[in-house]
């Protein structure tokens, strides 16, 4: 857990001692609890970025989260938001239902690559085709984390996983799926970008993109999606620092960072 400074309640103190300026606060949109994520996993970083953005936009009380099936299955216990838990891959459909009946609320899904790019491709593509005004936080760690590191649709060519023991062979198991590139061609999509969290600089850029994705929804422009390259030291069998290097050196060349569509 990062050190947590209490947010000063008043800017004044009674006893004349100097006023403390908060330089680091725990986001309102996150709960101050321990997560179950493995050491070095960047789900936590991404949770925090999303929470900070929601705080900064002042939309915590009108934001609804749809949690996935995957390592982030308990995201609803970590975010201090109204939230629900979708069946595996169906988060965009559930979010569609929410947004259609609550058009003034902000609805986002938080999905892994197995969830979104495998079992849930139908749901994400049709939510995009309909131009659902939802935001999708798409966490790509190139494996099925929760079930123990099987091959994901985003696994890299040659990547050894527990269900591709000989390494992913594109001739047999196909090529990695590039979701924001695919969705960018759809008129219903207003914002489709890819970012990473392997360094402080990239984390900053990721936060900006998340902010813009939510702003896109606030402006009613269409579906917004941020794919975020994320680490899984446990299933990649690496130490946390090595896993960040793996993102930079192995994943980024296959999943180029960038903006594929920006409207507004």
């Amino acid at each position: 857990m990062p050190p947590v400074l209490e947010r000063p309640i008043e800017n004044q103190t009674n006893n004349g001692s100097p006023v403390l300026e908060p330089v680091y606060c725990f986001p309102d949109s996150l709960r101050d609890v321990h997560t179950h994520y493995c050491p070095g996993c960047t789900h936590g970083t991404i949770h925090r970025l999303v929470a900070e953005v929601i705080d900064e936009l002042g939309i915590r009380e009108r934001t609804l989260m749809v949690a996935p099936v995957g390592c982030a299955v308990f995201a609803y216990e970590y975010f201090n938001l109204d939230s629900c838990e979708a069946a595996h891959g169906r988060a965009p459909a559930m979010a569609t239902g929410l947004k259609r009946v609550l058009p003034d609320q902000i609805v986002f899904t938080y999905q892994g690559d197995g969830d979104l790019a495998s079992i849930g491709t139908n749901e994400i593509i049709h939510a995009a085709a309909r131009g659902e005004k939802i935001t999708v936080i798409f966490v790509n760690n190139a494996v099925y984390g929760m079930t123990g590191g099987q091959m994901a649709p985003t696994s890299l060519p040659g990547q050894v996983t527990s269900s591709s023991p000989a390494g992913r062979n594109p001739a047999i198991q196909g090529h990695p799926i590039h979701i924001p590139e695919m969705l960018a061609g759809m008129p219903g999509v207003a914002y489709a970008v890819r970012r990473s969290v392997h360094s402080v600089a990239e984390i900053r850029k990721t936060k900006k993109a998340i902010r813009q994705a939510f702003q896109t929804q606030l402006d009613g422009l269409g579906l917004s999606i941020v794919e975020i390259l994320s680490s899984c030291p446990t299933n990649w069998r690496m130490d946390p620092a090595g896993a960040l290097d793996f993102i930079r050196d192995q994943m980024v060349p296959v999943f180029p960072l960038g903006d594929f569509k920006v409207i507004g």
Binding site: G114, Y144, T147, G148, Q150, S162, S163
Partner: peptide, 10 residues
Amino acid sequence: PITPQTELLE
């Protein structure tokens, strides 16, 4: 994959 049968697939 789905627990508790994933070892079959693996």
